[in-house]
């Protein structure tokens, strides 16, 4: 029964609700599960928001990279290269530095050096670059016939993009994009670990695991708990993306639908 009290107290500790002080002695397994689970709120927050916003930018950048116009193509290529070519670890470092110095320009930029906004922006740009590369690859493998058929029907411009190019691209890119989503969630563990400071002892799952490993001097309990939560999260992501995959391929006969195979195409 005690465990329920712990859950009631600490379930939302990571976002500032609950006792001010973390448990400091006599650590129970229940406390570890609760607090690390509470930290997962941050991982899901970063992952889900960066994925949604990053998606839009990724489509735009992929179109830019595939475009004939060098003024669109070159910046898109550079953007993809820089964010895919450097470790996220270093991106966080620079972003934090950069947002710090913006703060002295105007107080408006104050919130940017907090993890909730600053780290989200980095993850957003990062996932946009990785997804853009996937979408670009998919754009290039759209069957020629599909596009010719669209031309033959007299489609052009926006209708052609909306009805032919975009859905086909999405369908082709979806397995790769699923991987990107999984690895984006994994990458969120870096936020408090290297880049941004934790306030009021509210951090992500790894932050609390670190806290417990430090207090109990036993790394063999908290880190496997993090691993456990992430395996669950990964399964959920695969499930949701699998549903979307079914929807995208709904026009195909049942046995021709490619099963979603998770291949590691991108991580950082």
């Amino acid at each position: 029964m005690e465990c329920w009290d712990t859950i009631a107290d600490y379930a939302f500790r990571s976002i500032g609700y609950g006792p001010r002080l973390l448990p400091r002695t006599d650590f129970t397994l229940c406390q570890q599960f609760t607090l690390i689970g509470s930290g997962m709120i941050w991982n899901i927050y970063f992952g889900a928001l960066a994925l949604c916003t990053g998606f839009i930018l990724a489509v735009a950048v992929a179109m830019g990279k595939a475009s004939q116009n060098p003024w669109l193509r070159k910046p898109s290529e550079l953007f993809i290269f820089i964010f895919r070519g450097s470790p996220l670890f270093i991106q966080f470092f620079f972003a934090y530095f950069f947002f710090q110095s913006l703060k002295s320009v105007s107080p408006f930029f104050g919130p940017f050096s907090s993890a909730a906004l600053g780290a989200l922006i980095v993850l957003f740009l990062n996932t946009a670059a990785y997804s853009a590369q996937i979408f670009y690859g998919a754009l290039r493998s759209i069957p020629k016939g599909d596009l010719e058929a669209a031309d033959a029907y007299g489609m052009s411009g926006l209708p052609k993009f909306r009805r032919i190019t975009f859905p086909t691209m999405l369908r082709l890119a979806w397995p790769g994009y699923t991987n990107e989503a999984i690895f984006l969630f994994h990458a969120t563990t870096l936020v408090f670990f290297s880049g941004f400071p934790a306030r009021q002892q509210g951090g992500d799952a790894l932050y609390y695991a670190n806290y417990f490993a430090d207090k109990t001097f036993n790394p063999f309990v908290p880190y496997p708990i993090v691993a456990f939560y992430f395996i669950l999260l990964t399964l959920v992501v695969i499930g949701l993306f699998g549903l979307m995959n079914r929807y995208l391929n709904r026009h195909l006969p049942q046995d021709a639908r490619k099963k979603l195979r998770i291949r590691p195409q991108i991580i950082r």
Partner: peptide, 18 residues
Amino acid sequence: AIVRGVPDIAFFLFFVIA
């Protein structure tokens, strides 16, 4: 399945000692 489901940092933090 298991190794890929876990963020690499979490893995690194206890695996070497193990």
